[in-house]
Amino acid sequence: MKTLRNLLLLFFLSLASLGLAQETITNESVIQMVELGFDDFMIIDKINNSDVKFDASISALGEMKDAGVSSEVLSLIMAKSRQNTKSKTGIYYTNLQGEQEIIQPSVFSGANSNAAAQKLVSGLINSKEKAQLPGTKSNNVLSTSSPEFTFIFDPSVTDVDNMQNNQGGETGIFNWWFRMASNPNEFVLVRLTVKERKNLREIITGKNSWITSSSGIDPKYALNFNIETIEGNKFKVTPDTLEPGEYCFIYQGAVPQGRDNQSVFDFSIQ
């Protein structure tokens, strides 16, 4: 009986240890440890032996300093934040459950042009090139008109053959946008036009006439957003208030040889 009791105790202790190992330490966790009277040695040891998810923006660090977090602990938090940006590149948003979730790129399913109409009127109008996404709604649903996004880059790797990385727990997803770019200014935010009858969303990506042609997103369609550096290659992006509808971030920088820019990072505002 005693042996069985010891085995059960060992089993429950193992479960408890597993739960602690999976605990994620955040800014709030550190502040809580300070309030509970933990010394720096204990806090630093806990950070070094746990998964972490820190906000190392200036405002967040200021809040922690005001809460009594020491300079030594703040330095460690900044270092951990820099380490966490590696191999986690992409655009993140806060989902309906309050968790950070990555926006996987959506690929254009086709393109449309009214070039034939333009020819009929001998250049009196421009033909518009439109890229299309399937479906009338994005899988990434945000329930706020004032969303915040986190952009994470890793421009240290620019060799095309080395731009593969693990993303969202899946291997082999090609995420070159955040290797080529170094900040959110290389992306543009636009609203997608929803075509209910055709079950698609589209955006104008170019114009042509018998005299001139242009490609890319017209600046008049670009929506404003603010950028705050969190740490290193990690940024907080806050658009101006967005009305309910379909939107996407589109990369507008240099495209590596052998790749095309036929994907966008789409989301819905509800």
Results as ranks from 00 to 15, higher is better:
residue 166 N to C: 04
residue 190 V to M: 00
residue 266 D to K: 09
residue 120 L to M: 14
residue 90 G to Y: 03
residue 209 S to R: 08
residue 168 G to Y: 10
residue 266 D to L: 02
residue 260 D to N: 06
residue 66 D to T: 13
residue 211 I to W: 10
residue 149 F to P: 09
residue 45 D to A: 15
residue 121 V to P: 02
residue 57 S to V: 11
residue 37 G to N: 05
residue 266 D to V: 12
residue 120 L to E: 14
residue 127 S to T: 03
residue 186 E to Q: 15
residue 215 S to N: 15
residue 72 E to R: 11
residue 222 A to W: 03
residue 27 N to C: 04
residue 211 I to D: 11
residue 76 L to W: 04
residue 163 M to W: 00
residue 101 E to G: 01
residue 256 P to L: 00
residue 182 S to C: 03
residue 162 N to V: 08
residue 68 G to L: 07
residue 216 G to V: 01
residue 132 Q to D: 05
residue 17 S to T: 13
residue 69 V to A: 00
residue 261 N to S: 10
residue 146 S to Y: 07
residue 252 Q to N: 08
residue 74 L to P: 02
residue 92 Y to E: 05
residue 232 G to P: 01
residue 187 F to T: 07
residue 263 S to K: 12
residue 90 G to C: 09
residue 186 E to F: 13
residue 210 W to M: 15
residue 20 L to F: 15
residue 22 Q to Y: 00
residue 154 D to A: 07
residue 5 R to Y: 13
residue 66 D to L: 09
residue 45 D to K: 14
residue 235 F to P: 02
residue 107 V to G: 02
residue 91 I to C: 00
residue 49 N to S: 15
residue 5 R to N: 14
residue 212 T to S: 14
residue 180 M to P: 01
residue 174 F to Y: 08
residue 42 M to G: 10
residue 165 N to E: 10
residue 54 F to W: 12
residue 230 I to L: 09
residue 116 A to G: 08
residue 128 K to F: 01
residue 240 D to N: 09
residue 8 L to R: 07
residue 13 L to I: 09
residue 6 N to L: 14
residue 260 D to L: 11
residue 170 E to W: 09
residue 204 I to K: 02
residue 237 V to N: 03
residue 265 F to M: 14
residue 156 S to K: 14
residue 251 Y to K: 08
residue 223 L to P: 00
residue 164 Q to G: 04
residue 152 I to L: 08
residue 229 T to N: 10
residue 155 P to G: 05
residue 238 T to N: 04
residue 209 S to V: 00
residue 218 D to P: 00
residue 152 I to H: 00
residue 203 I to H: 03
residue 165 N to S: 09
residue 138 S to I: 01
residue 160 V to A: 05
residue 258 G to L: 01
residue 255 V to A: 07
residue 196 E to I: 13
residue 190 V to W: 01
residue 151 F to E: 03
residue 75 S to D: 13
residue 143 S to C: 04
residue 218 D to S: 05
residue 151 F to H: 01
residue 96 L to E: 14
residue 131 A to K: 07
residue 77 I to V: 15
residue 52 V to N: 08
residue 91 I to L: 12
residue 170 E to L: 11
residue 213 S to R: 12
residue 41 F to A: 15
residue 43 I to A: 05
residue 91 I to Q: 06
residue 128 K to L: 13
residue 192 L to Q: 01
residue 257 Q to H: 03
residue 137 K to E: 15
residue 218 D to I: 02
residue 1 M to A: 07
residue 33 M to G: 08
residue 224 N to C: 04
residue 9 L to Y: 11
residue 83 Q to A: 13
residue 193 T to G: 02
residue 212 T to A: 04
residue 119 K to C: 11
residue 262 Q to M: 11
residue 43 I to T: 09
residue 43 I to V: 15
residue 66 D to G: 05
residue 100 Q to M: 12
residue 236 K to P: 06
residue 51 D to W: 00
residue 229 T to Y: 04
residue 196 E to G: 02
